[in-house]
Design a protein around this nucleic acid. Structure first.
Lengths: 245, 245
DNA sequence: AAACATTTGTACGTATGTATG
DNA sequence: ACATACATACGTACAAATGTT
């Protein structure tokens, strides 16, 4: 956690929105009132409001104020979180089973939009990686088959308990903070592994979410692929049309 | 277009990144250099850089500078744009065919995560709307079946040429600027219309993208549903793990 | 219709803190 | 130890949208 003033104010306001202290449709106190309440400058208030705006929690209306437009439950799919982090915030029993663990070669440039996980027999720009395959279950029902390709050059160590430990947490503790990711969602025909682990029929489609995960210093750290049964797939996000003010 | 300084600077820099003047891996000039180059205050430069940061075009590294990390071609799926707007920026022949045009009733609260387009026989909070169904084609190949439910209470008029006119453009000219949307992506079994228009097999899955589109004053204006052949579906986005600085 | 107070948006200036090399 | 670069924070001024008097 950070001790920035604007981040503290952001969290306070976000908490009050989530708790219903400010309900959908309500106006937040004006920036000047908030400025006095928190005893900070107006710019600091505006930074906190900007964060709420970008997350779709409020809408700012010129000359009127800031309206609450959404409570946005903490775990929406688009956030950059690992399964273990999401599972920790759930109230249902979850578990992960290690189903693959190999030394492989991956070419990040060929990771998106190509057939297969693009391993073995590296190409020119191939890099060494550890492949960790895990079957994720919620209430003992299989929900996703996750494969993480951890780039050895950037992340030299791995957590002790491969199945249950948060991979993102490990990377952030041992290397550097994770900062951003490129994400791709496609549909592909189910293969034998999908059939076996996700219990989907061969030939039908499965959802594939691939991510390239980068650190704050722009180094690529993890390539990940998550395969899901389309029946359980639903993805939500909030998008804005123009630049935020 | 706006004449804000920070937005002009943002567009200038984004253009130079797209053109390769600043290539991936390059550092932008420092904030102080940019401040002198554009003859503005540092805060104005920082606002422009923040917009680039949020779009995944640069990464800011404390103490070092701003690195270009992506060119992010103009039309990535996640942006809040209509088909007509996207088509206008493409170099391939596109067209739209009007296949439905009815007066209906919709309940926005039941729009997400339910079966069917949820029309006819309104519920309690049902609202009157005009349903516009359009088959989108690129190079004469069907790519998506779009249904827009234009809420009559908010958008009383419709554009003259329903098939080819930009619906978003019409709303922004005649009512108010479109500001944000909630988006949901799911998979459902293909129905008869999907089979007919998208030429997918009955029983296989199609991708459904539903959106609730809101104006700057938070009024809900359009519910839209886009159905796509999974084979042609690919969705890309950029996500950040933490709050932007 | 016009004047006014309130509220958000943009822009500039300054100071200090922190990370990098 | 030092210069450079980004991050945070405060203060001020004026513009623009809104709603009321």
């Amino acid at each position: 956690m950070n001790d920035n003033k604007y981040e503290l104010i952001y969290r306070d306001l976000a908490g009050k929105i989530a708790a219903g202290t400010f309900a959908v449709g309500d106006y937040l106190p004006s920036e000047n009132v908030l400025r006095r309440q928190y005893d900070v400058s107006r710019e600091t208030i505006r930074k906190a409001l900007l964060a709420l705006l970008n997350e779709g929690k409020i809408q700012k209306i010129h000359g009127k104020g800031s309206v609450v437009i959404g409570t946005r439950p903490a775990l929406s799919s688009p956030e950059l979180k690992g399964f273990t982090e999401i599972a920790a915030s759930l109230d249902v029993p979850t578990n992960s089973r290690l189903v693959e663990n190999d030394s492989v070669s991956v070419d990040p440039d060929r990771f998106f939009s190509k057939e297969g996980p693009v391993v073995r027999f590296g190409t020119n720009r191939a890099q060494p990686a550890i492949l960790i395959g895990r079957l994720r279950q919620i209430r003992n029902q299989p929900v996703s088959l996750d494969r993480d390709f951890v780039l050895t050059d950037v992340v030299p160590t791995l957590p002790p308990d491969l199945a249950e430990t948060s991979l993102y947490g490990h990377v952030e503790r041992s290397v550097a903070p994770i900062s951003y990711a490129e994400r791709e969602i496609t549909m592909v025909p189910a293969d034998w592994d999908d059939h076996q682990f996700l219990e989907v029929q061969l030939g039908t489609s499965v959802v594939v979410i691939r991510q390239k995960v980068y650190l704050t210093d722009t180094r690529l750290a993890i390539l990940s692929e998550s395969r899901l049964d389309p029946q359980h797939f639903h993805y939500r996000e909030f998008v804005r049309r123009h630049l935020s003010p």
